[in-house]
Design a protein around this nucleic acid. Structure first.
Ligand SMILES: [Zn+2]
Ligand SMILES: [Zn+2]
Length: 794
DNA sequence: AGCACGCCGACT
DNA sequence: GTCGGCGTGCTC
């Protein structure tokens, strides 16, 4: 006899590592349940969650009922649902949070259904209302006792093959004018105002503070989001004369002709040809495409995708967010007109919904986007590309932690399609997989058109006792010469602000972030000290709070110091700065890049984002300042990152007809020998032995545990108790917890412990036992974070 | 993460 | 006497 109710496990979008059991009346539990959204009572809240599974048996007493069922079938295709399950398990992430990452913010999406033509003679009632053209399910609602029951019946019909469904934007496209906010006062006045308002009007202060450091104008929506402020707070500031609001100029439609000037579709070099051939013939598997910058990796991607499209399949292309520029989009769009959907965080909610629906319905067949695009709702994927596969931005650094590059590989195997991981500087993990034969290795050894690799030289850092110039004399000369010869230059210094700290000349005091315990960076714009870990800031004191002295020095370079220095040293050069402070929102870098490409500046100066994959034919000189900083970074990946940074930056030089030169400022040229020779093999030769010795990737796998909380002693105690009595398999090396490198972050003390093993299953078994032990020792005010395959150990 | 319950300081 | 601070604990 059938039960009158069905029990289901529901995942809720909360940081909880379990699902909850609910009951559903049979009449709403028909057809496919897994992945459907439901509304459930949760504590005193009402939440929208997802059915994760059918429950074993309604064992618990006092189960609550699902209030309503929102879908007949999951919004995402089965492959994506499978990917989410795998990811939640592998990364030990809360299932509901992983689902939330993979699903669209669903407001604004509606479902329509139509009959497939297969007759359903005794079908349930909705069938009579559904013809061969799509009808919105909302229109069917009136004849039914509840949405839940309609969904249940539609689900049964679809499972039996009588129906198919489609998702589309609920509203007609309304091109609402987006608004820009323009500062109306100089930055230091804005900052001053912010200080005065801090107590009385937090939201206004926070808006002012953002405006004070953004160079020109910001999108109203993203400003309010970042400031966590309301429109009313902004209007108050407009009234006070601090800012004005004006409509944005219509987004320049990607002008393919202009953006693609000088780009001819050439015939393939032999290396490209062979790579493409192997990819196209594969019916699955992973390829590592290792090609130096300028070797034509993108052309290989484009042709591999074209091949897939010609077979009636679709493609997912992952690109680091910072490299997702109009230039790149235009290149794809011109190759595949009308088929490309970009999933970018600069999109408005309605544009995002539109892109999502177009991919879901198959109207567009190529999804391009950053990390989250690995969950693109394509239903007939034939090819997955991950460009710059080594890029750390593929790893999400907050819950749910996942690495989109690795999920791409899993999605490829779920869908049974090839995955191409491309890089000029492959991660050691991918290199390891290629050399063990798990991945196919495809190599593009030279630049296309036999363009020479740039010539790379070391420059000696200036020696001086107190405040040395931030740019070596040799580099100043090169910049001048390069400018005279009509070339543009890129200058990279991977450090924001004016200087990493500001010190009292008489007593040596430097300020400290109260929440992170580190010295805040001095920003000349607005004259503020800002903590880059948490965003805390103060107006830089005029008198030293320690001794009352009024004279300060700075102790090292930042891009702003370089900017100020160049203005004096080379007044004839037009310098454009690009860093987190001038690029405050996604897409804000596009305008800077476009202006530099139009040669409205001679030098593009900035942090690592200047090195990320833009083609500027006019650039004949690249300077990397204070390269030693990258090596001094306290992390096991420092050498790898330093190598990648120098290689990537060097790759920007000589993309046009004129060969390029690269200058690397370092006091230890030997340490950069591999990068300067642009020789991946010699980088491997120096780095692999170190990794092997430590048992780090690619020779071992890592899982990192971080205990954190506001009370240091409790955190330390919780870490100790968690570990006490924990049984660890012999295959796993588990180092005891110790204060993390970032000992305190955002007001929380941090302890971390690292587990490593060559055997992944053993490592994975460890995670639940650690979490169990943590929960049993019932810590108050302490949180445990698990980071599988960490990209850094800070 | 929310959200409420709970037990101690400064307000009408 | 209450209002509210956020410490603590729970959510089927
Ligand atoms: Zn002092
Ligand atoms: Zn801080």
């Amino acid at each position: 006899m059938p039960e009158p109710v069905t029990a289901v496990e529901v995942a809720v979008p909360r940081p909880v590592w379990r699902t909850y059991t609910y009951l559903m009346p049979r009449e709403m539990a028909g057809g496919t349940l897994e992945g459907c959204r439901v509304e459930v009572p949760f504590g005193r809240e009402r939440l929208r969650g997802w059915i994760w599974d059918r429950a074993k048996a309604p064992s618990g007493i006092d189960l609550k009922y699902v209030e309503s069922r929102l879908d007949s079938v999951p919004l995402v295709p089965p492959s994506v649902l499978a990917l989410v399950r795998w990811a939640a398990d592998y990364y030990a992430a809360p299932p509901g949070m992983m689902l939330a990452s993979a699903f669209p913010a669903a407001s604004g999406i509606r479902m329509s259904v139509r009959a497939t033509g297969r007759p359903a003679p005794d079908g349930p009632p909705p069938m009579g209302l559904i013809g061969s053209s799509f009808v919105p399910v909302d229109d069917l609602l009136p004849g039914f006792p509840s949405r839940s029951i309609l969904m249940s019946q539609l689900s049964e019909l679809e499972a039996a093959g009588h129906l198919e469904s489609r998702f589309e934007p609920a509203r007609r496209r309304v091109d609402r004018q987006s608004l820009m906010v323009v500062p109306a006062l100089p930055p230091d006045e804005l900052a001053g105002m912010a200080v005065r308002l801090r107590r009385r009007a937090r939201a206004q202060a926070s808006i002012l503070e953002i405006l004070s450091r953004s160079s020109e104008r910001v999108l109203l929506g993203s400003l309010l989001r970042e400031a966590d402020a309301s429109r009313a707070s902004l209007e108050a500031l407009v009234k006070a004369g601090a800012a004005t609001i004006r409509p944005a100029e219509p987004a320049a439609a990607p002008d393919s002709a202009g953006l693609l000037a000088g780009r001819v579709v050439e015939s393939l070099e032999p290396g490209q040809d062979e790579a493409l051939d192997r990819i196209s013939r594969a019916d699955g598997g992973v390829f590592l495409l290792h090609g130096v910058t300028g070797s034509g990796k993108t052309e290989v991607y484009l042709r591999a995708i074209a091949d897939s499209i010609s077979k009636g399949r679709q493609a997912v292309v992952l690109v680091p967010e910072i490299s997702l520029t109009p230039q790149l989009m235009a290149r794809f769009e011109s190759r595949f007109p009308g088929r490309v959907a970009v999933m970018h965080s600069a999109l408005s909610p309605s544009e995002r919904t539109r892109a999502w629906c177009d991919l879901s319905s198959g109207e567009r067949s190529i999804a391009i986007g950053p990390r989250s695009a690995v969950f693109a709702p394509l239903r007939r994927v034939g090819m997955i590309i991950v460009d710059e596969e080594h890029d750390p931005s593929y790893k999400q650094q907050e819950l749910p932690r996942y690495n989109a590059r690795d999920l791409a590989v899993i999605r490829g195997s779920v869908e049974g399609v090839p995955v191409v991981l491309g890089s000029a500087t492959p991660s050691l993990e991918s290199w390891g997989n290629a050399s063990s034969g798990r991945y196919g290795l495809l190599t593009l050894p030279s630049r296309i058109g036999s363009r020479p690799m740039p010539e790379v030289r070391a420059a000696v850092p200036p020696r001086s006792d107190c405040e040395p110039p931030p740019v070596p004399a040799e580099m100043v000369e090169e910049l001048a010469k390069n400018h005279e010869a009509g070339g543009q230059a890129i200058l990279l210094l991977n450090r924001r602000g004016f200087s990493p700290s500001r010190i009292c000349r008489s007593c040596g005091r430097r300020e400290t972030c109260p929440d992170c315990g580190i010295s805040p960076t001095f920003h000349s714009r607005g004259g503020i000290l800002r903590c880059h870990h948490c965003g805390w800031w103060i107006k830089a004191p005029v008198r030293c709070p320690g001794c009352g002295g009024g004279s300060f020095r700075t102790d090292g370079p930042g891009v702003q110091k370089v900017e100020a220095f160049l203005a004096k040293a080379l007044p004839g050069l037009r310098v454009m700065r690009m860093d987190r402070d001038t690029v405050s929102s996604p897409g804000a870098n596009w305008e800077i890049l476009a202006r530099f490409a139009r040669r409205e500046a001679d030098v593009l100066l900035g942090t690592q984002m200047v090195a990320k994959g833009h083609d500027f034919p006019g650039v004949t000189l690249v300077g990397i300042l204070a390269a030693d900083l990258a090596l001094a970074f306290p992390d096991f990946r420092a050498s790898e990152r330093a190598f990648q940074l120098v290689m990537q930056a060097a790759g920007r030089a000589g993309r046009g007809e004129i060969p390029g030169r690269v200058l690397v400022e370092t006091s230890d040229p030997n340490a950069f020998a591999a990068a300067m020779a642009q020789d991946y093999a010699s980088f491997l030769a120096s780095e692999l032995p170190v990794r092997k010795l430590l048992g780090y990737p690619p020779f071992g796998h890592l899982v990192r545990f971080v205990w954190s909380g506001p009370d240091e002693r409790r955190v330390a105690e919780s870490a100790r108790r968690t570990m006490a009595g924990l049984e660890v398999e012999p295959a796993v090396r588990f180092l005891p917890p110790a204060p993390a490198i970032l000992q305190r972050l955002r007001g929380r003390w941090r302890y971390s412990a690292l587990a490593r093993s060559a055997r992944r299953p053993a490592l994975r078994r460890l995670i639940p036992s650690v979490r169990d032990s943590f929960e049993k020792t019932s810590p108050k005010g302490v949180q445990l974070d698990v980071d599988v395959d960490p990209v850094d150990l800070l």
